[in-house]
Design a protein around this nucleic acid. Structure first.
Length: 477
DNA sequence: GCATGATCATGC
DNA sequence: GCATGATCATGC
């Protein structure tokens, strides 16, 4: 059969893929084929396979390699959702390749199946609509995404972190927050049995290598910025401004580079650090977060004109820098707040693993702790005098993610019943690690309630007690 | 002393 | 104008 493209050529496959844009498979596939195919377009998964077989007419093979074998490129269909504002957003992480616990421990990154399949991908973005058959989903963008060299250095380190954990018999303890761009995400049928892992008798849920939602968001941003519906990053230089360089990443991991930047400042107070960096001290409640971001981005090399917020790497990784303040005895002073609860998101998203809260709580965290000087009492507490005490990357352990799921279910259940008041949610006095509390400009600051009308803004919090405990756990090893 | 609700400076 | 990253103020 005449294919209509050259299956050995990436540009040719890319050009052909553009015929998808603005259309659905129902419009593009002959009725005869729609009837005769075994692919029914129901259930989860399989959209990529339908596109490959019915649109590209590429003979499906069961090879472990990339979908377009001759071109060395994999095909990925991935969803976008449209907000009320009309803005398109990433629906989920990009699942790349199932992790074979038995085999992956014998692979190196460069020879791994993941690398072979995914270092160049044809990304086909479709508009996700609830309840719509795969035959009727519309395609919006097609993108050739070759992982840039700088990203690959971070991804290689992530890959090794994941494989190392499996080699230690800890496949059951893998978490998306263990790594920076590439993550081991949960993947498998609901209720399916856990699998064997090679270096432990404990069974582990199935997982896949995936690019984090934060990473995919920056891919989408890049695509939107090009102003075209078909984009290939192989044709042009990607802007690669960030807080670390490719050369630095060849020598050290991203995390080591960042931690190292804080080293000259341990034991120094806020005012001393401002003085060293040539910064005018701020009166902001978030003054410590401001200098922590400066140090993470530039260390003692900081110069006034440097850009600080939203570095490329922090955006792509979704790493959350959080400052912690503690009394001289080490007890954490404040609860840690996150973003406001998006009631519409809570209302619409039924899956915990796809929820915003899951993404936030399974982020990689960078905790920067400032502590009161020795000998001071609680009454003396003064942000300007706190000294840099500890800096560490952290991710939430599996048992706490289970607690977070119950926390999310409680919130969701009440939002669905239009019970959006503090008395319905977990409060701090329950001592259940997390709580819900107001956060707005002031008491009159309201947002849309999916049940109708407007409601007060509340947000997700870690209890200070929980943060004290996680620091104690960190300090013990 | 602590939990709860309220509010602030900053940057885009 | 609003989200972010926080701390402050009050009352029991």
């Amino acid at each position: 059969m005449e294919l209509g493209y050259d299956k050995t050529s990436i540009p040719s496959i890319f050009a052909y893929s553009q015929k998808l844009i603005g259309h659905s498979l129902r419009e593009l596939v002959s009725e005869e084929e729609q009837v005769s195919t075994n692919l029914q377009g129901q259930g989860k998964g399989g959209l990529g396979q339908m596109i490959e077989e019915l649109f590209f007419h590429y003979p499906i093979n069961s090879d472990p390699g990339p979908d377009f074998r001759e071109a060395g490129m994999d095909l990925k269909a991935t969803g976008l959702k449209k907000l009320m504002s009309g803005e398109l957003q990433i629906k989920e992480r990009l699942v790349c390749d199932m992790i074979d616990y038995e085999k992956v421990v014998d692979e190196s990154f460069e020879t791994s199946l993941f690398y072979m399949k995914c270092h160049i991908m044809l990304l086909i973005f479709y508009l996700y609509e609830k309840g719509v058959s795969k035959w009727d989903l519309r395609y919006i963008f097609t993108v050739i995404w070759k992982l840039p060299e700088k990203d690959l250095l971070i991804i290689k380190h992530d890959f090794e972190t994941i494989v190392e954990k499996i080699r230690h018999g800890e496949a059951h303890l893998l978490s998306e927050g263990d790594t920076v761009y590439l993550a081991a995400c949960r993947k498998g049928q609901k209720g399916e049995k856990d699998r064997k892992q090679p270096y432990s008798d404990t069974l582990a849920p199935r997982r896949a290598f995936s690019l984090k939602p934060a990473y995919m968001r920056t891919v989408l941003e890049y695509v939107k910025a090009q102003g075209k519906s078909a984009v290939s990053n192989m044709e042009m230089e990607l802007p690669s401004e960030g807080i670390v360089t490719t050369d630095q990443l060849r020598e050290h991991s991203f995390e080591d580079i960042i931690i190292e930047r804080f080293r000259p400042f341990f034991g120094h107070s806020y005012l001393e650090i401002c003085d060293t960096l040539g910064l005018v001290p701020s009166k902001s409640k978030s003054r410590l977060a401001i200098i922590a971001n400066v140090i993470a981005a530039h260390g003692s090399q900081y110069r006034q004109q440097n850009n600080v917020e939203n570095s490329e790497e922090f955006k792509k990784s979704g790493i959350r820098l959080k400052t912690i303040t503690s009394f001289s005895n080490g007890r954490v002073k404040e609860d840690t707040s996150f973003e406001n609860i998006d009631y519409e998101e809570i209302f619409d998203e039924e899956e915990w693993l796809d929820s915003r809260l899951y993404e936030i709580f399974t982020s990689r965290f960078l905790f920067v702790q400032f502590q009161q000087p020795e000998g001071e009492t609680q009454k003396d507490f003064d942000l300007n005098k706190l000294k840099l005490k500890r800096v560490f990357f952290w991710t939430m352990p599996p048992e706490d993610i289970e607690t977070a799921k119950a926390y999310w279910q409680n919130i969701r259940q009440h939002v669905l019943k239009n019970e959006i008041e503090p008395k319905y949610f977990w409060n701090k006095a329950m001592h259940r690690k997390f709580h819900v509390r107001p956060k707005g400009r002031n008491a009159a600051d309201l947002v849309i309630n999916p049940n109708g009308g407007k409601v007060r803004k509340y947000c997700y919090w870690f209890n200070a007690e929980y943060v004290t405990n996680l620091i104690d756990n960190y300090s013990r090893h």
